[in-house]
Structures are given as C-alpha cells and as structure tokens.
Design a protein around this nucleic acid. Structure first.
Lengths: 292, 292
DNA sequence: TCAATTATGTAAGTAACTTACATTTATTCC
DNA sequence: GGAATAAATGTAAGTTACTTACATAATTGA
C-alpha cells in the first residue's frame, strides 16, 4: 500500500512550503495523526483556527480528492505507521519507544522491499534453487554471513544439499570444485566485498550457475546470472541495527517456501523425520516449531 | 493497533449469525474489503441490495458507533492486513502470493509480539546486558542458534565481550568457567531443549546471572533470573519457515539498541573503528551499512 | 504604486449519514 | 393453528458534514 506511506510523507514534504493557513492545518494534523481520522472538518478547522474551506483546500493540496478521501487515506497511513505502538496511544516508556522504532522500521522496510521486488526474478530464483543438486550460500561480514547460514538451515530441510560459508578462502576454493548442476547463492547488503566478487567470478569461469540477493546496481548484482536486487535505505540511527538483514531473511523464506511447494512430498517426509529426530532432546514431547 | 485487527475478525466471527439482510452486507463487505472505505453507504446498499439503514445497522452490529466510524476503522484494518500485497490490488502471481504471505505473517507476528511484550522485563534486560562484562549467547537447533550468533554479532560492536555457542558440550563447559560479572543469555523458541536447560542450571549454580528469550511458561522461562517471554503461534503452513525467529531477532535488536544508547560514546567510537577496518575489503569505498 | 495573482472566509448548495416510524417477517406461546 | 410479541426491514424526514461559489483580503511582480 504505497498510498498509505505517501500521505504522511507527502504532508512532511509539503511542510514549510504551504500558504500560512494551510500550514496551520498541517501542523495540527501532523501533531495529532491518530485522532484526525475521527475528527470532522469543522473540529479540525476550529482546533487549527482556520475556516472549514481551508481544511478542505489542504486536503486537496495533499493530492486527495477532498476531505473525505483525505480522512480515509490518512486513517490507512496512520494505521500502518503506528501499528507497533501501544494500542492505548503512544507509549512513552523507553522500552516502548525502542520496540515501536525497531518493529516499525522493519515494517516500513518490508513495505519498501515489497514495492521494489520484481516477481519474475523471484520465480526464476525459485526454479534455479529447486533445480540445483547442491546449493552453496556465501555471505561475509557478520549479518550477511548469518543470513547465508540461516538460508542453508532452511534449504537442507527441503532435501537439497545446502551449506553456508563465510570464509573467503574457503569460498574460492570450494567454487573451484563445483559444476553446472550446483548453484552459488551470494548474499551481501552492499554488493561490494572483494572476496565475494572474486569467488563468484571464479564460479562463473567454471560454468557454475550464480544467484545473488544484494543491493540494486552493485557489482555483485551485475555479476551473477540472476539477481534479486533491492535498494533499501541505511538507517539514520547509528545505534539501531539495520532492518535490511531481517528483510533479506524474509526473502530467503519466500524462496524457501516457493521451493518447498515445488517438492511437497519430499519436504513433508523430511520434516516428519526431522521432528522425530528431535524428540529425545527435549525435557518433554510437547509441540515444537518444525520450522525452527 | 489491536482495534485494527478486530474489525475484520469481528465481521468474520459474526459471519453466519446475522439477520438475512445484514448478512448480505457482510458478504459484500468481506468480498470487497479494499474498496469499501471509499464507497458511500448508498453505494454499498445498492450493491448488496439492501436499504441504507441496514448498512448502518450492520455497522452498529459490528460494534462501531455508526457508518462513519465503521468506514474509518475498516480503512485501518484493511491497510494493515493488506500492506504487503501489490498496491494495484491483490497480486495473483505465485511469487506475489508468497511475498504477501511471508511478509504479512511476519507483520502479524510482530504485532502479536508487541501486544505481549512487557516493558519492564525489556528494560531490566537492557540493564543486565549493559552491566555485563561478558555475554555468552546460547541457542540450539538451527534457527535459535543463528539468532544467538546474530546477537553476538550485534553486541560485540557495543564494546561488550560477546560470543555465541550452539554446541551443548561447549555450553556446559563454558558456563562452568563464568562468574557473576558475566551473563548467560539463552535463546530458544520452545524453551525445552535439555542441553540448554542443563547449561543454564549449571550457570546458576555458579552464581552467573541468566537471561532468556523464549516461550512463555516454558521450563527455560521459569529457570532464568529474567525472561522475555512470548507465546507466538506456530505457522499452520508447514512449508513456510516460522516468523518467530525473525521476531526474536527483532527483539535482540531492541535490546542491542537499548544497550547502545546507554553507552553512546563507546559505541560511536567502535562503529567508527569498525567502518575503518572494513574499508580496504571492498571494490570501492562507497557507503556501507555500518549496522551490518 | 498599481494590477494581477493568490489566499482566505462566509454562506449556499449538495451529499451522506442518522433517526423515527410504519410495515413486514419471524418467533413464541397457548 | 392462530394470536401476540419481538425482530427485521424499508422509506423518508431530520441532521450533519462536506463541497463549491463568490466576495474580500493579502501578496507578488513590474
């Protein structure tokens, strides 16, 4: 729902460029976002000390078809952007703020990723993954390495030989032993690490199919046979871990789910065996997430 | 925004229990969710072949104060529940469906986690983490192990000695060497793995503070000094990886961010050093996510 | 300074929602 | 089965809220 994000952003873009009276309306609206959808035009006009026609004009200025349209669209914007704050209003506790920010940014970044994702490369990637006899996931640099590890953790369950490597030396040695029935899947948020680019280049020289999940327009994106590419913003708050790696993990889940659905019988049997293998390791035999 | 989820759920609960004409309205509304907020009462009445007063009654039956209130609340419900589907309407491509499902479930699970999270244990956990001289993250079983690894990847940047271990043997040996200035942080979606419980028990015997992120009411939850506990549903679709581990990673991010904010100078300097250390490893020196 | 353009408010016009009441339908009780 | 009661329903009047028109005020540019 890009229309959802756009209305709050739109008002923020317009902020400071509006005629005097409309600016008063904008100030009031931006300062009372969650209540506005439930207020009448007259109530807003009174609170902002302007006429009702100015409120209507402001709604038109934002690109809506009128105040009615504005109210509905704002309700949607507010609902999405505030869904992780406390239901009783804005939670002012330090922890509440942290949760709202981390969860909200993740949600926004998921929305952005969704708008950027092209479905055809996703479907082609699922086909590549489903057709591979062995998948080698590569990632370097902490989080990307962990995403690669988690990818292997997902795909081994589907009955495809899957492994993950973060060590650049091992990566380049390993790709030298692969062939065209295998698949190299490189994961990197920046698309720039030299070691990763070298390993992928070597894989291609040996005719190994290559796939990547990385930054749009990067060297890695251009280098691999197929790329799922995204241009996600870096978080302005340096103290906050990037939402990007969680989005990458969710995309791995999309690919894993798509691949699983292409081989349901094998997957089901594997999951059953996995569950059985885990039974003796717990203090009781209650339900466990088989997707863990 | 639990009110957001409730209206669609509410209508689904009421489905089949309504008077005849109101049931026609419900059928039409549930079949055209994304358009309803932009239709008038009269338009809905005509489409459902009922009177306008019946549409108003239906709105009242759902618990709203009238049709105006209903429309706003429905706009919010729809915006949240459909935010990851294609902006042009429901995407019927296989990949679009996968993305919508994975992203949507993650968003729902984040919302559920938010409603369950208690802020006081989160703040206490941040204090424990900030006060530890060394943090040892434990997870077993694939994804929890990867969450633990990612946690260590987050916390080492804050200037706290941080490590992750998935091997039960190493875990129990290691906790035998810790003392009360250290912290054991156990991560498990089920809260039941015997090895993990044993290691935590040994840690406690040696007076090592213990923290966990795990299933509410589980043995691990009861065992540790402090627990961030959640009761998240297992996904009914066996082919889909669980959203839970992504939610757990997001909660680790909350804790990491909270801890970082308690030591801003140290963190800033560490992040600067980390970025500097990474510079020679890329094919160019463009911006990289420092949170990676 | 003046003319043209833009901004603004008031009030009339219109759309849409809410409420009242009469009629119809369904349920309950004898 | 029939009468009484309760619930459901539609029509239309009443009310609210939004939209539009127009006059006036303020701003901009030559």
């Amino acid at each position: 729902m890009n229309t959802v994000i756009d209305l709050i952003s739109r008002m923020r873009e317009l902020n400071g460029t509006l005629p005097k009276r409309e600016q008063l309306v904008a100030d009031f609206v931006l300062g009372n976002l969650d209540q506005i959808p439930f207020l009448s035009q007259h109530e807003i006009a009174k609170a902002a000390d302007v006429s009702v026609a100015t409120v209507n004009r402001f709604a038109m200025t934002t690109g809506c078809e009128g105040f009615r349209d504005f109210k509905i669209r704002l309700a949607q914007s507010v609902a999405v952007s505030q869904q992780y704050f406390d239901a009783n209003g804005i939670d002012t506790s330090p922890a509440g703020q942290l949760v709202g920010k981390v969860f909200g940014t993740l949600s926004d970044t998921l929305g952005l990723a969704r708008s950027q994702l092209e479905m055809q490369p996703v479907e082609n990637a699922v086909d590549m993954l489903n057709g591979a006899q062995r998948i080698v996931f590569f990632g370097v640099g902490g989080s990307s390495a962990n995403v690669a590890r988690e990818a292997a953790n997902r795909f081994f369950r589907l009955g495809i030989a899957s492994e993950a490597h973060a060590d650049g030396y091992v990566q380049r040695m390993l790709v030298s032993t692969l062939d065209k029935k295998d698949l190299v899947f490189a994961i990197s948020s920046s698309g720039q690490p030299a070691e990763l680019l070298d390993s992928v280049t070597i894989a291609k020289q040996y005719g190994v199919p290559t796939l990547s999940l990385t930054k749009a327009g990067s060297e890695l994106a251009a280098l691999t046979d197929l790329c799922i590419q995204l241009d996600l913003p870096e978080d302005p708050d340096i103290y906050k871990p990037s939402a990007q790696r969680l989005v990458y993990t969710a995309i791995i889940d999309v690919l894993a789910m798509g691949t699983a659905r292409k081989r349901p019988d094998r997957v089901k049997e594997n999951l059953r065996r996995i569950r059985t293998s885990l039974l003796p390791l717990s203090k009781d035999s209650g339900p466990r997430p088989i997707g863990d």
